[in-house]
């Protein structure tokens, strides 16, 4: 059996004239907790809807649990637990009723598990959905996404609408109920500092492509800010990938990939430098907003590879 839960290879998607995804590729291994990051409107939800077969791609290859969702959408949906962003459910149903309503759609539905999750997540089963708070609504959606013991759980920005206490509870649930049971979790989030403690792996989507996919810890070890004299930048190997650079007097602060080798290199050439650790927000910003390609003539020797 394939050990990839999700496999996407140069997928393209346009809506009318605007191209949302331009050859996006990434892979999610089974058992991983995978965070999918990108600015709003960069196509996260589009990608997620494609994974469920709710949207079709224009070109490229896409497999979810070894199946093509465009060809077998029902088989994929039956094996995947999905929580949509801002999921609207039938307001007139009671929380307990929607559990019973959804149950027969999933062959592997475990109603006792559903009731247990509802209890764990403090979802009031007697209440009508339209009277639930936003947080209760999300948690009810989560119960619906988990109760059939899916191999893969896809959550579209579940933190949206949860307060800090609930987010912590949610992260805890995610860790205990999903990571603890070896499930694959693929989720998108706009709260990067919430992602870091939880995710094994992150992928950053920018301008319709994945600009970086990496283990969370590796990413933080790999991308760092180095402050060095402006002229020393020319001494750097041309292969060094500079994500962002900010002149600071006669020094320049550069954000680089492969920090370890860069530091090694600087040490060899005995260039005075300082290394600053970056948090995930700053790393994300460097990838998404960074001025990597030097436009100033002074830095002409360094190219974004």
């Amino acid at each position: 059996m394939n050990d990839l839960a999700i496999e996407i290879h140069s997928v393209q998607k346009s809506f009318g004239k605007s191209e949302v995804l331009r050859g996006m590729s990434f892979q999610v291994e089974r058992g991983q907790t995978f965070a999918f990051l990108g600015r709003n409107g960069e196509g996260k939800t589009t990608t997620i809807r494609m994974l469920l077969g709710l949207l079709n791609r224009d070109s490229g290859m896409l497999r979810v649990l070894g199946r093509d969702p465009a060809v077998e959408p029902l088989a994929v949906r039956a094996q995947v637990g999905y929580l949509a962003e801002d999921q609207t459910m039938y307001g007139w149903m009671r929380a307990g009723e929607i559990l019973r309503f959804v149950a027969p759609f999933y062959p592997t539905w475990d109603h006792e598990l559903a009731l247990k999750y509802a209890n764990d997540f403090e979802v009031p089963l007697q209440m009508k959905i339209k009277h639930l708070s936003k947080g209760q609504n999300v948690r009810l959606g989560l119960v619906l996404a988990l109760a059939h013991r899916p191999e893969l759980v896809i959550l579209d920005d579940p933190a949206l609408g949860l307060d800090p206490i609930m987010r912590k509870q949610f992260n805890r649930d995610l860790i205990t109920h999903l990571q603890g049971e070896g499930r694959t979790v693929f989720y998108s989030s706009h709260l990067l500092y919430e992602v870091e403690p939880v995710a094994d792996e992150v992928a950053i989507l920018d301008e319709g492509r994945i600009v970086r996919q990496s283990g969370t810890e590796q990413l933080r070890a790999d991308v760092k800010q180095i402050t060095l004299p402006s002229d020393a930048i020319l001494a750097l190997n041309k292969k060094v990938k500079i994500l962002d650079q900010r002149p600071d007097g006669n020094e320049v602060a550069i954000t680089v990939e492969g920090a370890e080798s860069v530091v090694e290199q600087l040490r060899c050439e005995s260039v005075e430098h300082r290394v600053t650790d970056l948090n995930l927000d700053e790393i994300f910003e460097a990838y998404v907003m960074g001025q990597g390609a030097p436009e100033i003539g002074k830095f002409a020797g360094v190219a974004k590879s």
């Binding site: 907790t33 912590k168 992260n171 805890r172 860790i175 603890g180 403690p197 939880v198 995710a199 969370t216």
Partner: peptide
């Protein structure tokens, strides 16, 4: 590892490492 991960709401692999 499991207990600490749950308490801190941090990935189990991180705690293990």
């Amino acid at each position: 590892v499991r207990e600490l991960a749950r308490e801190l709401a941090v990935n189990q692999n991180t705690i293990l490492r």
